[in-house]
Design a protein around this nucleic acid. Structure first.
Length: 332
DNA sequence: CTGGGGAGGGGGCCC
DNA sequence: CGGGCCCCCTCCCCA
C-alpha cells in the first residue's frame, strides 16, 4: 500500500466512518470497514506503527503530521480535506489533539493515573507541544494546519475545506466536541449523562447521552468515569481480574465470569427451537439470528410456527429462554 | 459456523 | 441527589 503523500515511510490502514458519533466508535469500527488510505503510518491494532512506541506511544496523530510535514500549506489543507472525506481515523485523532492542545496539561487525567500512564503522557505532551493555539495544529515543518469543523458531537463535516471565514466561525461557535476538551479537565463540570436533544439527518429529534469523560490516550468519550476508567485499562494493559483455573486475566469481571464457563462447561442458555445450549447470551443471540435465516426445524418443537425469530424478537423471548431466569434483557 | 476474548453501552444499586 | 461502581448485554474481531 502506498501513501498518497509520497514521502511517508509507512502507510495507514484505516477504515470508514460509521454513523455513530464518538471517536471511540470510529476506533472500534476501524477493522470492519474496508481499508482506506491516508498518507500516514500503519495504524493497526495488530500491526502497530514502529514509530508509535518511540515517538508518540499513545497516539496515531503523528501519522498525519509526519505525512504532511513536507507539504505546502495548501497541500496540507488539501490532504486534510481529502482525509476528512475519507473519515480517516488519524484525522480524527489529529482533531482531538488539536482540541487537546488547548487543554491545560496539569488538569488532564494523568493526575489520576499510574506512573506508567504518566510516562506515556510525557511523550504525549511532547506531541501536543507542537500545537499552536486556536485549534491550529503546527506541523513539524512549522506549517499551521487548520482543523476540520465539527458541527456536533463527533460528527465532523469535511465535505469542503474551511476558508478563513469558516475558520473564524468555527472558532467562535466552539463545536461540542471541542468544548468537551477545551480547557476542562477530563471530568467535566457539566452534568454527565444528561440526555440532550439531537437533530437527525431527517430533522427528527433524538436523545443522546452526553459523554463528558474523555480518554486522554485516544480521546474516546464515555458517559461516566467508571466507563472511562475501564477503558483506560485497555491502554495500560492492566487486567485486574484473573482466572484461578488458568492464567487468563481480564479487564472486566464479567469477562472473567464468562470465561469461567469455559472451565466449568456451563451452558445456561438454550435455544428452545433446536435445544442447543450456549455458554453466553450473545452466542444464543447469534444462533437465534442464524435460525432466523430460515432453517426449518419442525422436528424440534417449533416455537414460532415457521416465523423467523428476527421478525419480532419480543414475541419470541419466551420461546428460547435462557435457563437463567434473571436475564430479562436477553429477551430482545 | 463456533467459541473465545475485547470493548462499550446502559440500567441499577450504594454511598 | 449525584457520582462511583457493578452487572449484564451486545457487538466486534479473530482463530
Amino acid at each position: 500500500m502506498e501513501s498518497t503523500s509520497g514521502n511517508v515511510s509507512c502507510v495507514c490502514k484505516l477504515k470508514k466512518l460509521s454513523d455513530k458519533k464518538t471517536l471511540g466508535y470510529y476506533k472500534r469500527r476501524r477493522a470492519r470497514l474496508g481499508p482506506l488510505m491516508i498518507g500516514a503510518c500503519v495504524v493497526s491494532k495488530h500491526s502497530p506503527c514502529p514509530e508509535r512506541s518511540s515517538l508518540y506511544p499513545n497516539t496515531h496523530t503523528h501519522t498525519l503530521t509526519a505525512a504532511m510535514s513536507h507539504l505546502s500549506n495548501s497541500s496540507v489543507r488539501d490532504h486534510m480535506k481529502w482525509a476528512g472525506l475519507l473519515g480517516c481515523e488519524a484525522v480524527l485523532s489529529s482533531m482531538a489533539l488539536m482540541q487537546a492542545g488547548s487543554m491545560p496539561s496539569h488538569k488532564k487525567m494523568g493526575s489520576h493515573l499510574g506512573q506508567g500512564q504518566r510516562e506515556n503522557n510525557h511523550s504525549h505532551n511532547h506531541n501536543q507541544d507542537t500545537h499552536s493555539q486556536h485549534g491550529h495544529m503546527v506541523l513539524p515543518s512549522g506549517v499551521s494546519c487548520p482543523p476540520l469543523l465539527i458541527r456536533k458531537d463527533g460528527d465532523f463535516h469535511s465535505s469542503r475545506l474551511l476558508d478563513e471565514k469558516d475558520m473564524q466561525a468555527s472558532q467562535n461557535v466552539q463545536p461540542k466536541k471541542k468544548n468537551r476538551k477545551s480547557g476542562l479537565p477530563t471530568k467535566m463540570r457539566e452534568k454527565p449523562q444528561v440526555e440532550i436533544p439531537d437533530v437527525n439527518d431527517d430533522n427528527s429529534l433524538s436523545s443522546q447521552v452526553q459523554k463528558n469523560f474523555i480518554c486522554e490516550h485516544c480521546y474516546s468519550a464515555f458517559r461516566s468515569s467508571y466507563h472511562l476508567k475501564r477503558h483506560i485499562l485497555t491502554h495500560t494493559g492492566e487486567k485486574p481480574f484473573g482466572c484461578d483455573m488458568c492464567d487468563m486475566r481480564f479487564i472486566q469481571r464479567y469477562h472473567l465470569e464468562r470465561h469461567k464457563r469455559v472451565h466449568s462447561g456451563e451452558k445456561p442458555y438454550q435455544c428452545d427451537r433446536c435445544q442447543q445450549n450456549f455458554s453466553r447470551t450473545d452466542r444464543l443471540l447469534r444462533h437465534r439470528r442464524l435460525c432466523a435465516v430460515g432453517i426449518p426445524k419442525e422436528e424440534n418443537q417449533p416455537c414460532c410456527e415457521g416465523q423467523p425469530y428476527s421478525q419480532d424478537p419480543s414475541q419470541h423471548s419466551a420461546s428460547w429462554s435462557p435457563l437463567q431466569t434473571n436475564n430479562s434483557r436477553l429477551a430482545v
